[in-house]
Design a protein around this nucleic acid. Structure first.
Length: 175
DNA sequence: CCAGTGATCAGG
DNA sequence: CTGATCACTGGA
């Protein structure tokens, strides 16, 4: 299996979010054990205009990594409980990210963080170079649902109405 | 329906 | 320093 490269992540977040469906994510633990999952749901966050995107608040310590080039990992703790796993996309100074919302038949970004044992230490890590989390190429998924993003009611109707959540059908996989 | 739980950020 | 807010989940 080939790992996805920087050029893949440098595309805009909507393209990356769609094309990540069906790709394989591997988590290698310190004891040498590992797990492999299929990405089945993603959400795209696109630029400073997008009121649902954290980068719309400007460049801060937390959002800094989104202003870097694609391929870096953006993680943060939400509601004091859940670690969200995102991959930065786009080019330098074009803040974008894709949130991983589903793996195999497990749905929910909070559950994904727990499943993969994500924490602050992943912030800014280059996923194309990491030795503990990797994403491998796999055939494009043609059929998927487009839905509004979840949990962003504060962003205003224009941004709530964007269908930037992408869900593959479970039946595409042997889960 | 709503509590849990803590980092983060703007404002004094 | 304070206090509000938050890409969520699980249990009444």
């Amino acid at each position: 299996m080939n790992e996805l490269n920087i050029d893949f992540y440098k595309q805009n977040s909507i393209i990356v979010a769609k094309n990540l469906l069906g790709k394989k994510i591997e988590r290698i633990h310190q004891d040498g054990t590992y797990n492999l999952y299929t990405i089945t749901a993603t959400e795209a966050y696109l630029g400073e205009e997008d009121k649902a995107c954290h980068a719309s608040k400007g460049r801060t310590a937390r959002t800094e990594v989104m202003f870097q080039r694609g391929g870096l990992i953006y993680v943060y703790l939400i509601y004091g409980i859940h670690w969200m796993l995102n991959i930065v996309t786009g080019d330098l100074n074009s803040p974008q990210a894709v949130l991983i919302c589903g793996l195999d038949n497990i749905r929910g970004s909070g559950r994904i963080g727990k499943l993969l044992k994500i924490d602050k230490s992943f912030y800014g890590e280059d996923i194309t170079k990491s030795n503990r989390i990797k994403i491998y190429d796999a055939p494009i998924i043609e059929k998927f649902d487009q839905l509004p993003r979840k949990g962003i009611n504060y962003a205003g109707t224009e941004w709530i109405n964007k269908l930037w959540r992408f869900e593959a059908n479970y039946s595409n996989f042997n889960t």
